[in-house]
Simulated scan of single mutants.
Amino acid sequence: MREEGFVNVTGGKIWYELHNKDASGTPVIVLHGGPGSSSYSLQGLKELSKDRPVILYDQLGCGRSDRPKDESLWRIERFVEELGQIREALKLDEVHILGHSWGTTLAAAYALTQPSGVKSIIFSSPCLSAPLWEQDQKRNIEKLPEDVQETITRCEENGTTDSEEFKKAIEEFNKNFVCRLDPYPEWLKEGRKYRNPEVYEIMWGPSEFTVMGNLKTFDCTSQLKEISFSTLYTCGRYDEATPESTEYYSSLTPNSNFHVFEHSAHMPYVEETEEYLRVIGDFLKSVE
């Protein structure tokens, strides 16, 4: 019921896995976060394959895909092109798209090219405006202990975001706004080896909180009214993709739905797995 392989895209080969190819429902393709992360943490979404084919893939530059050294590849336009190439190679004439975090940035940019055959998009913990994301993180930081706030501010100002004290401050931030499970699942830690920090730094920057990469000016909020197919916006109550911003994006999008996972931060698909699968599954069925 599972196949895996590689697809040729601009710049190299990307790895994919396809679950339940022969299921009757419209396939859903999953766009992971990052940039430069991988599909590793999203493996639980294969449970959606009870009703439809599920495709996960590692974007070029990370995970099990090729890691070319050409820095010009790390721009959103190429990732949009890559998604189209994957759909063509796997013959995904009709598809649902589920993007998480940076995956929603990619999903929105792709949707705005007006591709054919897209039935719906799920914007899971969305980042559709880099400036707004940055503002939200400044407010989130203010909710942390003062010593943690001071460390983050000082390290960013001094360019020491690779220091141990900054990493410890990030851990505190992550416990509050990324994944609130305690203890943090051991299996998730294994996924770190699939990341490529170079892609992240070129596109986003050396820090989560201040966008310095080539996505610095990305903001598609004024174009969300152009997305005509069904959409679902979701986030966690304590998400770094804040409920306020997520609901704002939803309000700008026609034919849109909005849902908050009350016991989650940025990873409700791990923090509230059963509820996440239920909400996503029900939405996909309602579209069909």
Rank of each mutant, 00 (worst) to 15 (best):
G11T: 01
G11D: 09
G12V: 04
G12K: 03
G12A: 11
I14S: 03
N20P: 05
K21P: 01
A23L: 12
A23P: 09
T26P: 02
P27Q: 04
H32R: 02
G34E: 00
P35W: 02
P35E: 01
G36D: 01
S37D: 09
S37Y: 05
S38H: 02
S41R: 07
Q43D: 10
D51K: 13
P53N: 10
V54P: 03
V54F: 13
D58M: 04
Q59P: 08
L60T: 10
L60H: 08
G61P: 13
K69P: 06
D70E: 09
E71R: 13
S72C: 06
R75Q: 14
R75A: 04
R87V: 14
A89H: 14
D93G: 13
V95S: 06
V95W: 05
G99E: 11
S101I: 03
S101D: 10
S101H: 11
A111L: 15
A111H: 06
P115D: 10
S116E: 15
G117W: 13
V118Q: 11
I121A: 05
I121F: 14
S124N: 15
P126W: 03
L128A: 03
L128F: 05
S129M: 07
S129I: 03
P131R: 08
W133D: 04
D136E: 15
K138C: 02
I141D: 01
K143D: 07
P145N: 02
P145Y: 01
Q149F: 01
Q149R: 15
E150Q: 10
E156K: 09
G159A: 09
T161Q: 11
T161N: 08
D162V: 13
K167M: 10
E172S: 04
E172V: 14
E172Y: 00
F173Y: 15
F173Q: 05
F173T: 07
V178T: 14
C179H: 11
R180V: 08
R180Q: 13
Y184V: 04
P185A: 06
W187I: 12
L188C: 06
K189D: 12
E190K: 12
R192C: 00
K193T: 03
N196A: 09
V199F: 05
M203R: 02
G205Q: 06
P206T: 08
P206F: 06
F209L: 05
T210Q: 09
G213Y: 03
E226W: 05
I227K: 13
I227P: 12
S230P: 02
T231N: 05
L232M: 13
Y233A: 07
Y233K: 02
Y233G: 14
T234V: 11
G236I: 11
E240N: 15
A241F: 07
P243A: 11
P243Q: 12
S245I: 09
S245G: 07
E247I: 04
Y248C: 06
S250C: 15
S250A: 15
P254R: 11
N257K: 15
N257C: 04
S264G: 06
S264I: 08
A265E: 09
H266P: 15
P268N: 13
V270W: 09
E272F: 01
T273D: 03
E274A: 11
E275M: 03
Y276P: 00
L277G: 03
G281L: 00
L284C: 00
L284R: 02
K285Q: 14
